[in-house]
Design a binder for these strands. Sequence first.
DNA 1: GCCAACGTTGGC
DNA 2: GCCAACGTTGGC
Length: 156
Amino acid sequence: MPYWLFKTEPGCFSFDDLRNSSNMIAAWDGVRNYQARNFLRDAIRVGDRVLFYHSSIPEPAVVGIAEVVRAGYPDGSACDPNGEHFDPKASAHNPIWYMVDVRYGEPLPRSVSLEQIKNNPALADMPLVKRSRLSIQPVSEDEWNMILAMGGLQTR
DNA sequence: GCCAACGTTGGC
DNA sequence: GCCAACGTTGGC
């Protein structure tokens, strides 16, 4: 079962926002990076698990887990001329950008900070550590288990 | 707020 | 298709 890490600025969309969403499900829209788009469109499947990461705050951290409940489909926000994520090159025929739906899972009893992740040699290969700005990134099973353990969750 | 990393754009 | 300029991300 593949695992992923999704980054978000909590001031924009936080883990609590996901919990408070209708049915605790939200569309992960607005991704405008081709590598991340390719994951959303081609690789992410229903049932995949997601580490929910808060970025651009004093202590960036993985704060919880979520689950994919709908695989990649066209991101309509690219076609809204008044929206923040409008892309004039996108159309119904050629959507360009994709999104998935995720459902709130559970918070980590202890958030796992970027600093902790960087200090753990077992996590040195994560794109997060390599200073990639990639907002959707794959996570290995070992990395998933390690971060859940660090956060005080039994592997699940 | 700074700035390094890095992705994108566009002239040639 | 190269690469300089530019824009964005995100840690600090």
